[in-house]
Amino acid sequence: MTRWRAVVAGFVLAACSEALVFAWTGRVTLVGGLAGSALAGYLAGGEPADGAWYGLLTAMAWGIVLIPGLVVLSVLTDAPLPFPMEFLLPYLETAGEATVIILLSASLPNVAAGAIGSHARRQDDQSNRSERSSRTSNSDVEEA
Results as ranks from 00 to 15, higher is better:
Ile67His: 09
Phe22Cys: 07
Val28Arg: 15
Thr2Trp: 08
Arg3Asp: 10
Arg3Gly: 02
Cys16Lys: 01
Asp78Glu: 12
Asn128Ser: 12
Leu66Val: 04
Pro68Ser: 11
Ala106Met: 10
Arg129Met: 08
Glu86Ala: 12
Ala19Asp: 08
Asp125Pro: 01
Ala144Ser: 14
Val7Pro: 00
Ala106Tyr: 03
Ala120Glu: 02
Ala79Gln: 13
Glu131Ser: 14
Val7Asn: 07
Ala49His: 10
Arg122Ala: 13
Phe22Ala: 14
Arg5Thr: 12
Val7Thr: 07
Gly117Glu: 08
Gly26Val: 01
His119Phe: 11
Glu18Phe: 03
Val71Phe: 07
Leu20Lys: 02
Arg3Phe: 02
Ala9His: 04
Val31Arg: 14
Ser130Trp: 07
Ser105Ile: 08
Ala98Met: 09
Ile101Pro: 06
Ala15Met: 08
Leu34Ala: 12
Ala115Met: 04
Arg132Ala: 13
Ala6Ile: 00
Ala52Arg: 03
Leu20Ala: 14
Leu76Asp: 09
Ala44Val: 03
Glu86Leu: 10
Ser133Asn: 13
Ala35Pro: 00
Trp53Glu: 10
Leu57Arg: 11
Gly32Ile: 00
Leu92Phe: 01
Ala19Tyr: 02
Glu47Leu: 05
Ala61Tyr: 05
Met60His: 06
Leu88Trp: 00
Gly117Ser: 08
Arg3Trp: 01
Ala112Phe: 09
Glu18Arg: 03
Met1Arg: 14
Thr99Cys: 10
Val31Ile: 15
Trp4Asn: 05
Gly117Cys: 03
Gly26Gln: 07
Leu73Trp: 02
Trp24Leu: 11
Ala52Ser: 07
Ser118Lys: 10
Leu81His: 12
Leu39Gln: 03
Leu103Gly: 05
Val21Asp: 08
Val8Ser: 03
Val8Phe: 03
Ala14Pro: 00
Ser107Asp: 02
Leu39Thr: 00
Glu97Arg: 08
